[in-house]
């Protein structure tokens, strides 16, 4: 699957990364799911903070390398 401008979002508490390209299939979020389409009540799988406590990563594309 090709995805343009996919972004990576980082949990500010525990450093967990959500990569739009990869999604989070084990949590029911399909690969390619944009951040805005991740449910609002979704929580960080590692530390449990809310979606609002994630920040967009600047080095997005390189991260998935």
């Amino acid at each position: 699957m090709k995805m343009n401008n996919h972004k990576v979002w980082q949990c500010i508490l525990c450093d967990f990364l959500y990569d739009e390209y990869l999604g989070l299939p084990e949590h029911g979020i399909a690969p390619g799911t944009r951040w805005q389409d991740v449910p609002d009540d979704w929580e960080c799988p590692d530390c449990g903070v809310g979606k609002a406590d994630f920040e967009m990563q600047e080095l997005q594309t390189a991260i998935t390398a």
Binding site: L13, D46, V49
Partner: peptide, 15 residues
């Protein structure tokens, strides 16, 4: 510095 822990249904988040 940040830190977290979970025990039972408790989620602790610290900053």
């Amino acid at each position: 510095p940040t830190f977290w822990s979970d025990q039972y249904n408790l989620k602790l988040q610290m900053i």
